[in-house]
């Protein structure tokens, strides 16, 4: 009896986390079934592809910010950073006429560099993440407008650029499944990030920092350096988001981006990642992002007034987090 006592809650915890994932997934399926029953036009290949396409950018941003949130931080700059990465890609491709691959590297590199700067504000200068990234958010928005002279940069001179998000490698292989590349990239980014979180030292420190930063520091880990690395990785992922949105729009829109951070954070939260840090999964975030876009698309297909769409989305966020709270309360009692 006494011997097993310690392991019982451990198992409960594990199954609790799995149940939370299942819960989110079940909600997603329930939404899909509900909308499919409500409208014959919802469950069509083209509409499902549209939903996935709409998830790709928010999903990638959400994956990036999940890392930061697990460390117990927050990143408000991801929306405008995405735009800034898109703008820098435009500068390299359209203005300088460089080859496509350099544009791709620019987007990721710009994201990682800006992430590193945010990380430096947070880790070295000890500015609270909320403030540091709020500052970054505004600086990057301004820089995007300055660099572009407030006009969008179009990618008409770079053939193939729109293929990054809009083309379909899968569709070329399987004709019935025109899965946009943007979605494929989202899944790849999610898979790689999940691998990093679960298998590598960087991932381990991400959880450890969010769990008890002081304890990590006392264990002799250079917490500042690792935190900066995590912000840089998240920035690089956001850079990929910048590529996707600019490829989708065939342009870098300098005024875009504000508000995207909150949508990404909402997806992370719906996916069960705790804003308190230390806990979270990429799969959950992915499901959270899908729930959000299924919801918006479904309500639109049903011609629900846009005002009500906003209300419902807000309510879903509250319900999702409340369900998580209930689960946790249950787990802590068990």
């Amino acid at each position: 009896m006494t011997g097993t006592q310690a392991t019982i809650p451990a198992q409960q915890r594990r199954s609790g986390a799995a149940r939370q994932m299942l819960l989110a997934f079940a909600s997603l399926i329930a939404l899909v079934i509900g909308f499919s029953l409500a409208s014959p036009n919802f469950f069509q290949v083209s509409n499902i592809m549209a939903i996935l396409q709409a998830t790709s950018v928010n999903g990638v941003l959400a994956v990036g910010v999940t890392l930061i949130i697990i460390t117990g931080g927050i990143d408000l700059s991801i929306g405008t950073l995405m735009t800034f990465c898109a703008v820098m890609t435009g500068v390299v491709l359209t203005w300088a006429g460089m080859p496509l691959i350099l544009g791709v590297l620019t987007a990721i590199g710009t994201g990682a560099a800006c992430g590193l700067v945010s990380g430096m504000f947070v880790a070295r200068m000890k500015i609270p993440p909320f403030i540091a990234t709020l500052g970054m958010m505004l600086m990057l928005k301004g820089l995007s407008l300055i660099v572009t002279g407030t006009k969008p940069i179009y990618f008409n001179d770079t053939p193939g650029f729109t293929q990054i998000a809009q083309g379909s490698v899968v569709g070329a292989l399987i004709p019935g499944l025109p899965l946009p590349n943007g979605v494929l990239i989202l899944f790849l980014v999610a898979a790689v990030t999940a691998w990093i979180l679960g298998r590598t030292v960087l991932g381990r420190y991400t959880f450890a920092l969010g769990s008890n930063e002081e304890a990590v520091r006392l264990s002799g880990v250079n917490t500042d350096a690792w935190k900066m690395a995590i912000y840089a990785l998240a920035g690089g992922i956001v850079g990929i988001g910048g590529l996707l949105i600019s490829s989708r729009l065939n342009s870098a829109q300098p005024a875009l981006g504000l508000g995207y951070e909150l949508e990404a954070i909402a997806a992370v939260v719906i996916g069960g990642t705790s804003l308190a840090g230390g806990r979270g999964t990429i799969l959950g975030t992915l499901i959270g992002a899908l729930i959000m876009s299924v919801l918006t698309n479904g309500l639109r297909v049903l011609s629900v007034a846009p005002e009500w769409q906003t209300v419902v989305t807000g309510a879903i966020i509250i319900v999702a987090v409340y369900a998580d709270q209930l689960r946790r309360r249950k787990a802590s009692q068990g």
């Binding site: 509409n47 549209a50 709409a54 729009l249």
Partner: peptide, 20 residues
């Protein structure tokens, strides 16, 4: 919601097209 959200407008267009 505001006139910078180009991609949101595309998603709306896609949802509208889904309704044939």
């Amino acid at each position: 919601d505001n006139e910078t959200q180009v991609d949101k407008q595309l998603d709306m267009l896609a949802a509208a097209l889904a309704n044939k």
